[in-house]
């Protein structure tokens, strides 16, 4: 039980802190959310390449993989795995392959939502 609490505490704190970085950027730099998302994904990819993000993901699990830098880290992992398997072709196919599940899900559910729902006033 104690272990479980500790596990979720790590997820909560790391995930929360990554969001706090985003919030500071949002409030201090006037970057729009789209720019922050781009920044985070690219950062995750490079942090993966230099080996930092893997340690963070081992430590915090979903706390590191659910925020968008985790998506970038996933791209990095995907491209390396593809290169190991298919050589140079992997440079092209790895990233998109790794992103496939998330992107396809977003397209599918986004499309379904557009069928079912209408935009509402705030």
């Amino acid at each position: 039980m104690k272990e479980l609490v500790l596990e979720y505490l790590k997820v909560f704190v790391v995930g929360g802190l990554i969001c706090v970085i985003g919030q500071i950027l949002l409030d201090k730099t006037k970057l729009t959310s789209a720019r922050i998302l781009v920044l985070f994904v690219v950062a995750g990819c490079f942090l993966g390449a230099i080996g930092i993000y893997e340690k963070l993901a081992d430590f915090a699990g979903a706390g590191a993989t659910v925020p968008l830098p985790g998506f970038g880290y996933n791209l990095y992992k995907g491209v390396c795995a593809e290169i190991d398997q298919n050589g140079f072709l992997g440079v092209f196919t790895g990233g998109i392959k790794a992103a496939a599940a998330g992107v396809a899900a977003a397209i599918i559910f986004g499309f379904l939502a557009s069928l079912l729902f209408n935009a509402k006033e705030k």
Binding site: L26, D27, K30, T32, S33, A119, K120, E121, K122
Partner: peptide
């Protein structure tokens, strides 16, 4: 119109953003 102006000048209404 709030919704038409948001759509044209800012973001889609359902996008979860904060306004300064």
């Amino acid at each position: 119109h709030f919704c038409a102006a948001e759509k044209q000048f800012r973001f889609p209404l359902e996008l979860g953003t904060q306004r300064p």
